[in-house]
C-alpha cells in the first residue's frame, strides 16, 4: 500500500554549503539520501514530494558541521498482511517462485501454488496446469496475497500465496511467443 506521510530527518551539512542555496543543497542531499531506501517502520521511501519545514540548525562542536532537522513529505510503499499485490516473477524453482512488486521481494512456496500446477524443469522452469492453459514462469505477472511480511532496515521481504480465488497469473510472457 502507498502512503503519503511526513517524516523527519536530521541532515548534516558541511559549512561549505552555507549560503544562498542552502535550502536547495539540503533538499537535494535529502533526496539522494532517502529516496529508494527502506525505513523499517514506514516501508520504502518512493519519492519526496515536499518539504514541510527546516528547523534551526545546530552547530556541532569542533567540526563546523551543522545539523538541520528537516520535515519532509514523501510517498512510501509498505505491504501488509492480507494485501493483494501485483508482482512480476523473477525466479522459478522447485521450491516455488520469487516475484517483485517494485522494491519488495515476495516468495510464493509450492505449498501456496494451486495443486493442479506442476513444476516443470527445463530451459525455462515454470509451474503449469496439466492442460497447459496456465503457466507461471520468469517475467509472468501474477496477482498474489501477502500472508507474511518482514521489514528490515534495508529491505522488505514477504511470503505470498496464489492459492485463492482471483489470484494467479494475470499476464503470461510465453503466451505471445
Amino acid at each position: 500500500m502507498f502512503f503519503h506521510i511526513v517524516l523527519e530527518r536530521n541532515m548534516q551539512l558541511h559549512p561549505r554549503h552555507f549560503g544562498r542555496d542552502l535550502r536547495e543543497k539540503l533538499v537535494s542531499k535529502l533526496m539522494k539520501d532517502v529516496e529508494g531506501t527502506c525505513s523499517g517502520r514506514h516501508g520504502f521511501i518512493v519519492a519526496i514530494t515536499g518539504i514541510e519545514s527546516v528547523g534551526k540548525g545546530l552547530i556541532r562542536d569542533g567540526t563546523g558541521f551543522v545539523t538541520f532537522p528537516v520535515k519532509y513529505q514523501c510517498v512510501v510503499f509498505r505491504p501488509f498482511k492480507g494485501e493483494i499485490l501485483e508482482a512480476v516473477v523473477t525466479m522459478v524453482n522447485k521450491m516455488g517462485f520469487f516475484a517483485e512488486a517494485g522494491p519488495v521481494q515476495i516468495f510464493v512456496s509450492n505449498h501456496l501454488i494451486p495443486d493442479d500446477m506442476e513444476f516443470q524443469s527445463g530451459d525455462v522452469p515454470n509451474y503449469t496446469t496439466s492442460d497447459g492453459s496456465v503457466k507461471i514462469q520468469k517475467e509472468s505477472e501474477v496477482r498474489l496475497k501477502i500472508i507474511g511480511t518482514r521489514v528490515d532496515a534495508t529491505e522488505i521481504f514477504c511470503i505470498g500465496t496464489i492459492k485463492d480465488d482471483f489470484l494467479g497469473v494475470i499476464s503470461d510472457p510465453g503466451a505471445n511467443a
Binding site: L7, N10, G40, R60, R150, A153
Partner: peptide, 23 residues
C-alpha cells in the same frame, strides 16, 4: 500496523540521524 513491523531491527527511531550518537 506499525507494531506488526516489530520483527524488525531495532531501528525504530522516527527521526533518522545521519550520525546517531549525540543526537
Amino acid at each position: 500496523e506499525l507494531d506488526s513491523a516489530s520483527d524488525v531491527s531495532p531501528d525504530q527511531h522516527e527521526v533518522e540521524n545521519e550520525e546517531a550518537e549525540g543526537e
